[in-house]
Every structure is written in structure tokens, then in C-alpha cells.
């Protein structure tokens, strides 16, 4: 990218950002903001095509060099080709919809079902008491777990109330504190881009 190109890229990026931001404050800019976001959607659609090229390049390279796991790469390319052939009439066609309903969605559901086991193994590791902080964490976790189930009420009728207090007061206060910090961090990151201090689109610092 030449120096002029970099200047143009920066001016376009900052102008687009400022116009979209101004759209939140005045109606004059809100329509312009929508137009710019529409352009962004078109650019991302093109980026998606480049993404498909990227997938093909990465996995054909793996097959060509017989890297570890090359068979999975071959399966991926076959699946990609089959999806393109079967879904050639669009994602809303009967065949395209079947792909989503009978292959993609069940696969996603199966993967997320694994989370139940992953939660158990992660919790086992997390619940090892190494210091006072961890002991406190385990204590609160036990109270909340017992407070959620009928057995907890049978053990001590006040347990669900204590659980409610933990969730409503310390846990909520902590979450709000985190969210406040995240919001400020998000604003600061956005402003740095608008000020031209962060330019991930430029090819030099």
C-alpha cells in the first residue's frame, strides 16, 4: 500500500466510523450510518468468498503434503463440494434445508451435548482447593449447587434463601463490575480506532 493509499484508507475508515457514531445522536446521520453498514455487509460477503478460497488452499496443501490429519482435510473438501452440489438451488430449497435440518443441526447439538462432560471434568479441576481463594470458591459453589436442588432444602430449609442472596448480591455485584469495566474498555477501543491510533486495516504501524 502506498503512502497515499494508507491516507485514503485511514480517512475512509475514520469517516465511516464517525458517521455511524453520529447516527446515534442525530437523525441526519442515521440513514448514512445504515448505508455504510449495508456496504460493510457487501464487503463481508466478498470476504466470505475469500474465506472459502482460504479453506480450499489450507486443506489441499495438507492433502498434497500428506500432513497429519490429511484424511480429515479430504473429508472436508468432499463435504464442501457435496454441500455446493446439493444446495445449488439455495439454502431455502428442500435439499438445502435438509442439509441443515438433518446434518448440520444434529452435529451442532451433539457437539454442545459434550459440554455436559466437559463441565464435569473442568469443575473437577477447578474445585481443587489450593489456597484460601479456591476454598471460598468451592464453599460458594457447594452452597449454590445445594440451594438449587430439593435435597438442599431437605438438609437446611434456609439454603435456597442463602443461594438466592449469593446470586442476587455478591454474584450480581461482581458481574456488574465486570460489565462496567468491559463497557469502558469497549468505548476506549472504539475511540482509539476513530482517532486513528489503531489501524488494523493499514499495512504499517
Amino acid at each position: 500500500m502506498t503512502r497515499l493509499g494508507r491516507i485514503i484508507a485511514t480517512v475512509v475508515a475514520i469517516s465511516a466510523g464517525v458517521s455511524v457514531l453520529a447516527g446515534y445522536f442525530t437523525d441526519t446521520f442515521s440513514s448514512l450510518g445504515f448505508i455504510i453498514l449495508g456496504w460493510a455487509a457487501i464487503v463481508i460477503a466478498f470476504a466470505m468468498m475469500l474465506g472459502v478460497v482460504n479453506i480450499l488452499r489450507v486443506h489441499t496443501n495438507k492433502i498434497r503434503t500428506l500432513e497429519k490429519g490429511w484424511f480429515y482435510s479430504a473429508m472436508l473438501i468432499v463435504a464442501l463440494a457435496l454441500t455446493l452440489i446439493i444446495g445449488r438451488n439455495g439454502p431455502n430449497s428442500a435439499a438445502g434445508q435438509s442439509l441443515f435440518d438433518y446434518i448440520l443441526r444434529p452435529l451442532e447439538a451433539s457437539l454442545f451435548a459434550l459440554m455436559a462432560f466437559f463441565v464435569v471434568s473442568a469443575a473437577y479441576r477447578a474445585f481443587r482447593m489450593k489456597n484460601f481463594e479456591m476454598a471460598l470458591f468451592v464453599l460458594f459453589a457447594i452452597v449454590v449447587l445445594l440451594g438449587q436442588v430439593p435435597a438442599g432444602f431437605q438438609l437446611w430449609p434456609d439454603l435456597p434463601l442463602i443461594k438466592e442472596w449469593i446470586m442476587r448480591v455478591p454474584a450480581l455485584a461482581g458481574a456488574r463490575g465486570i460489565l462496567l469495566g468491559v463497557s469502558l474498555g469497549t468505548i476506549a477501543t472504539g475511540l482509539r480506532v476513530l482517532l486513528g491510533a489503531d489501524r488494523p486495516y493499514a499495512d504499517v504501524e
Binding site: 464487503v43 463481508i44 470476504a47 475469500l50 474465506g51 482460504n54 488494523p200 486495516y201
Partner: peptide
Amino acid sequence: PAVMLLAQN
């Protein structure tokens, strides 16, 4: 995919 392009850059 847009993040992919930024990461490549």
C-alpha cells in the same frame, strides 16, 4: 472472514 483478512494483514 473479514477478521481473517485483518489477521493476514
